[in-house]
């Protein structure tokens, strides 16, 4: 189908709709290049199988960072309490197995996502009326309260010592959880890819465009009749659900969690990863999580005491030199290349 003429479209509402659809479809097209990171990730268990254990942890953080990017990068909601949903998901999946004996992984993961999403819907509907420091502080306070509860209710959660007795049955009844961690790696890979595709689809949908509009100019969106709070709450719910799935993955892949999943450090770390990679493009979340986790791990090996120095310098460098995050550099180079070719 040929692109409708914009002038004609302006006159004709139906054509306008078609133009919008075409625009959306054009952005939705997954290019071959989109497969590269996933192919690379897929190669790990075959080429670098000894890295699967660490790779699984990275994938979980990638998924967690993706969930944050969706609300932060697309809807402009700045939060320091995303660990609340990650932790709720982790405890849902963990408690299902450890306390109720429900060991089937996929349904456990769905439950983790649903519980976190429900919590996201309720808290989002209340919290998203606020902005700036109030929102930051409210999100911190709520995750801190959950953290305190996890410590106080240690009969249920295991508290500081952690939730013991999580025992996940083989994936699809077939694949057992091996020592190298290939099963958990592939499991985490498939789950994060599905979540990525879903998020990608949503971000280019009209709903995603609405979020973009709200981020850029909330007042105008409200003026043209967009139910801002409702849209934001929906986005927050989706994001919380995905964070919950990430948490559930953590509980299942490690067969263990502690109340650390709910801590402020966890929220701060995922935010750092995301901003490091660059917000609002999903790939930033991937790059940021991978770079941060690798830097923290490898620097700690070089000199365990001072990995913080390296990560700190990296953060300052990123803000001062490439404020769009590491992936922003890629974007800039790509755009420059494009112009040059033209």
């Amino acid at each position: 189908m040929a692109d409708p003429d914009p002038l004609e479209a302006a006159a004709d509402p139906e054509a306008l709709g078609r133009a919008a659809q075409a625009f959306v479809r054009a952005r939705d097209d997954l290019r071959p290049a989109d497969a590269i990171p996933w192919l690379l990730a897929l190669a790990v268990p075959f080429l670098l199988s000894q890295e699967c254990a660490f790779g699984t942890q990275i994938l979980i953080m990638v998924l967690f960072a993706l969930s944050l990017d969706f609300i932060l990068g697309y809807a402009g909601i700045v939060t320091l309490g995303q660990a609340a949903y990650f932790g709720l998901g982790a405890y849902t999946a963990g408690l299902l197995s450890a306390r109720l004996g429900w060991n089937e992984p996929i349904s456990g993961l769905l439950a983790a996502g649903l519980v976190a999403a429900a919590a996201g819907a309720v808290s989002g509907w209340i919290l998203l009326r606020y902005r700036h420091l109030a929102l930051l502080m409210l999100t911190i306070a709520i995750s801190t309260i959950l953290y305190e509860l996890a410590n106080t209710w240690s009969w249920l959660t295991g508290g500081f010592d952690g939730l013991m007795g999580i025992s996940i049955s083989p994936l699809l009844g077939v694949f057992d959880w091996d020592l190298e961690g290939r099963t958990s790696y592939l499991y985490a890979l498939v789950v994060s890819m599905l979540c990525f595709l879903a998020l990608r689809r949503i971000t280019v949908s009209p709903f995603g465009q609405t979020l973009h509009g709200i981020r850029e100019n909330t007042a105008r969106m409200r003026a043209i009749g967009v139910p801002v709070l409702g849209r934001l709450t929906l986005a927050y719910t989706i994001s919380a659900g995905i964070a919950g799935i990430g948490g559930g993955l953590l509980a299942q892949a490690n067969s263990f969690i502690t109340m650390q999943v709910l801590s402020f450090d966890t929220s701060a770390a995922v935010l750092t990863m995301l901003v490091l990679g660059g917000t609002g493009r999903l790939y930033g979340a991937m790059v940021g999580a991978v770079v941060y986790m690798l830097a923290a791990d490898r620097l700690a090996r070089l000199s365990p005491e001072y990995w913080e120095l390296g990560v700190g310098l990296l953060l300052v460098f990123v803000v001062l030199v490439c404020p769009d995050g590491l992936f922003g550099v890629v974007d800039r180079l790509r755009r420059r290349g494009w112009r040059w070719r033209q």
């Binding site: 001072y306 913080e308 990560v311």
Partner: peptide, 27 residues
């Protein structure tokens, strides 16, 4: 350099600065 930047970048820079200062003090 960060006064007019979005609050996200401010948080990132100051967290980075905190980590650097903590590491130097530990050192």
């Amino acid at each position: 350099r960060i006064y007019r930047r979005p609050e996200l970048q401010q948080m990132l820079l100051t967290i980075g600065l905190t980590m650097i200062l903590m590491a130097l003090t530990t050192f």
